[in-house]
């Protein structure tokens, strides 16, 4: 087992302070150590006051998003030794209020996210050749989006428009349009159709680049635009709704 000491430079901030600072810690790592496990080791062995969010440890819950060496990542699936840098810089997500250390307030994210009624379980598209057992309509699975906020942190537009609906919420809205499953696609479309909605996007595609769960929010936002453009054209030329 290749053990190696890695230096972590972690952003620190507590309520009431005016500016954050960085603390450095040295952590023993092996070839399986993830950034999350290293941070937990820091909390256990060096500083119990280090705050961070985490839950599932396998890239499924979306709580442990942070910026590792400047890139938005789920820390639970980042292998420390594979990063290859002697110092690992760890910072909280951007474009969300900072609570303390690596914890940001997800309320603004969920305020947007829950606007159109967005279903959470969808029809499974995996293994279409399989039969479905008696008594079950179709195989279901969870939506891809982990609600981790990486896309919101990476989006260059979020930084200049605090009311921007953001990639995750609009990706979910597009899911409702593409596959309503009992929700109202009209509501979702109207919700995204404003200057803080899908028209604000500047096509930097950072949301899609950082998404850990194949959601592709950029394409979803563009699809919202396309659908709305189609409808507006129809309305202008009197072709009905």
């Amino acid at each position: 087992m290749a053990e190696r000491d890695v230096v972590f430079k972690v952003l620190r901030y507590k309520q009431g302070e005016t500016v954050p600072h960085y603390d450095t810690f040295t952590v023993k790592t092996d070839e399986n150590t993830t950034a999350l496990v290293a941070l937990q080791a820091i909390r256990r062995d060096d500083d119990p006051s280090l705050t961070l969010r985490h839950s599932c440890h396998h890239g499924s819950c979306g709580t442990c998003g942070m910026r590792i060496n400047g890139e938005e990542q789920l820390s639970c699936v980042v292998n420390v030794q594979e990063l290859g840098t002697p110092t690992v810089v760890v910072e909280p997500l951007q474009n969300a209020p900072l609570v303390s250390d690596l914890v940001v307030d997800m309320a603004p994210f969920f305020d947007r996210y829950t606007q159109p009624e967005m279903p959470y379980v969808r029809q499974s598209e995996f293994m279409p050749e399989a039969d479905v057992p008696d008594g079950i309509g179709h195989y279901t699975r969870y939506e891809n989006c982990l609600e981790c906020g990486l896309c919101v942190s990476a989006c260059p537009v979020m930084g200049s428009d605090a009311s921007y609906l953001g990639p995750a919420a609009m990706a979910a809205a597009w899911r409702v349009v593409a596959e309503p499953r009992g929700s109202d696609p009209e509501f979702a479309l109207n919700w995204a159709d404003n200057e803080h909605g899908c028209w604000r996007c500047h096509v930097a595609y950072e949301c899609t680049e950082v998404c850990p769960s194949d959601v592709n929010p950029a394409e979803a936002i563009m699809s919202l635009r396309g659908e709305l453009t189609k409808r507006k054209f129809r309305r202008v030329f009197g072709l009905g709704k």
């Binding site: 954050p20 400047g70 890139e71 951007q94 474009n95 900072l98 309320a107 603004p108 930097a204």
Partner: peptide
């Protein structure tokens, strides 16, 4: 009305958000 991202510590920094392309991709 949505809560803004202003939190006293990390305010909105549009210039940084626009032009800080470190670790960013083609789109940025």
């Amino acid at each position: 009305e949505y809560r803004t991202t202003r939190d006293g510590v990390r305010g909105e920094r549009p210039l940084q958000a626009w032009f800080d392309v470190r670790k960013r991709n083609l789109g940025s």
